[in-house]
């Protein structure tokens, strides 16, 4: 039993999107995947292959996290719990790649 007070909040379920939104997101995800695979096979894109693919997968990643995992609607704090470590991980990956010479200009 807890005493009621202004500082305690009942657990609120944030409104979740409807099935229609889910379907639209799924459609976009599928289209993006098709584009990804397409970019991979079209020689004309090969000069921008890596940035293009990274961008596309980042968009897919964000869509799933925002809509399917409800971060867009849910508490900002969950975004912090997820985003903080995500950024740490990204920083670690970049740091390690730098230390192992992945970004060094190939001579």
């Amino acid at each position: 039993m807890q005493q009621p007070s202004t500082d305690e909040h009942p657990v609120v379920q944030h409104a979740h999107p409807t099935a229609g939104v889910y379907l639209r997101v799924a459609t976009i995800l599928v289209i993006l995947t098709v584009i990804e695979v397409g970019v991979f096979y079209v020689p004309a894109f090969h000069s921008i292959l890596v940035p293009a693919l990274l961008l596309l997968s980042a968009v897919k990643f964000t869509l799933v996290v925002m809509f399917y995992m409800h971060l867009k609607m849910d508490s900002r704090f969950f975004t912090f719990l997820f985003g903080g470590p995500l950024l740490l991980g990204l920083g670690m990956t970049m740091g390690l790649m730098f230390l192992f010479g992945a970004f060094a200009l190939r001579r």
Partner: peptide
Amino acid sequence: RTSMGLDSRKMAFWAFIGSECLLFG
């Protein structure tokens, strides 16, 4: 009722997912 108005299990699970980010990272 919780201090942040968030479900404790969900909060723990988001922390777990954050942790998993570093594992896969």
